[in-house]
Amino acid sequence: MAELTLIPNLDDADGFYARLLAAHDGLEKSDSDALNARLVFVLANHIGDADVLDQAIKLATLRDA
């Protein structure tokens, strides 16, 4: 089973964070929410692997096990 990457893996963490915020600049809450939702699907498609995605969903809930 493929493993979800849990070690720091971003090339430029601060830069990514800044660009994510910038993408939301000036958006209404509803448009921002929609952007985040689209981003989830874009990234999920890039990953593809169902096991990794399952681990990611579980991890994002912040609940143990």
Partner: peptide, 16 residues
Amino acid sequence: LLRDAVLDLSARHQFA
């Protein structure tokens, strides 16, 4: 919101 995100992406991108 998630459903509409999929539909909006589908208009432009085959992957969705």
